[in-house]
Nucleic acid binder design. Sequence first.
DNA 1: GGTGAAATTAAACAAGCGTTGAGTTATTAT
DNA 2: ATAATAACTCAACGCTTGTTTAATTTCACC
Lengths: 224, 224
Amino acid sequence: MINNLGELGLEQNPSKRERILDAAEALFATHGYDGVTIRQIAHAAQVDVALASYHYGKKRDLFDAVFFRRADVLNTLRLERLTRCEVEAGPDGPDVEAIIEAFIRPLNPGELEEQTGDPGWHNYMALVAYINNSPVWGQTMMTKHFDPLVQRFIKALKKALPNASEEHIYWGYNYFSGAISLTFTRTGRIDRLSDGVVSSNDLDMAYKCMVPFIAAGFKKICQD
Amino acid sequence: MINNLGELGLEQNPSKRERILDAAEALFATHGYDGVTIRQIAHAAQVDVALASYHYGKKRDLFDAVFFRRADVLNTLRLERLTRCEVEAGPDGPDVEAIIEAFIRPLNPGELEEQTGDPGWHNYMALVAYINNSPVWGQTMMTKHFDPLVQRFIKALKKALPNASEEHIYWGYNYFSGAISLTFTRTGRIDRLSDGVVSSNDLDMAYKCMVPFIAAGFKKICQD
DNA sequence: GGTGAAATTAAACAAGCGTTGAGTTATTAT
DNA sequence: ATAATAACTCAACGCTTGTTTAATTTCACC
């Protein structure tokens, strides 16, 4: 039998309509689209099975609703951060570290939860990571809602790395994107590998390491 | 209606027993465990539905069979390469670039297909990427069959980066692992982003960029 | 060439799936 | 208070799922 709200770490307060979204978010994030049934979602949200269809229509529409709910919030925050970073840097533009930092800092679920008071961000980031790594959803869903931001990011990178070839920039972004995804998925793999020295839930540490790591990678392949 | 063998780019020759494995490999890799039905696999393999159960038992056992078929082949190749790299380097051990290179070079599906004459390696690498990124399978399956190799890899890295903290090494490995996974998943995202300049199927280029990128990242966070 | 074992097929099973329509309760507006 | 609308429940539907059972074919071996 599948978890109820408490076990998934979700709020108990909100309306049934929202609880369905929260439960779906948590379950889709860990089991993927096909690994979750409407009945499991309803059970986790402590709600009748038919209510999901009543509010959101088909299963696929529910999946989209979960994805879209936070997508624009996130993109707005990230665009703001990127713009601010560019403004502060002046005419030469920001350096690579600042661009990387601006690109991923607003993704920190911990900070997002503090700002919004919503504990669902953790699950949402894992869901986006799942979608990003899926051959099925990766192209369509990510392209539609995140491409404008990524293009801005790449444009800023090109300015900071004037000698870089297009190929190197895009492959670099690919590695970067993969690193982000696996980090947010929090598989717990490194916890075991390191025998408890490192925790995949320590996203603050993940950020602290990722920025210089990725920045150094970009500089290396784009400057030599 | 789902693809048959030809559309999946599989061999037509082998026995029905093997065809089931090949078809399952291809379908699991793109749609995940829950996204594929036994009937789809049977149809793609041009085989009766019951034959999958007859040869491999439960669906989960079939999934395991697909995973295990190539796991040991791959690990043997990688361990050889890592050992050879260490021997050639002498008492000081190989540098970071050589270690990274040794770790991922045997994963190149193109080379593997040349060596073994088997076109299924592409799908297998995508499947492992899927498993590696899954919160459900990530821990158990990867741990069991790939941990020894990863530990060897990390040990070599520690030697090449004597000032590195444990935390930095393991987080670096996490980014590296994520980069590999997304690359092998070949979502085609960068193809669109770059408007055709880059192809996610060009794994030779992916390797050529990844080694210096990841090596620079490790050096940066482990030496400062 | 007949015999036994392995491979393969066809048909069926119970269980679970997403979705629907009709009926009931709660909420809002007048 | 009443009417109208939204929120919600219950029971059922047709369909697909993984798996099994028994019958049939294929094949190796003496």
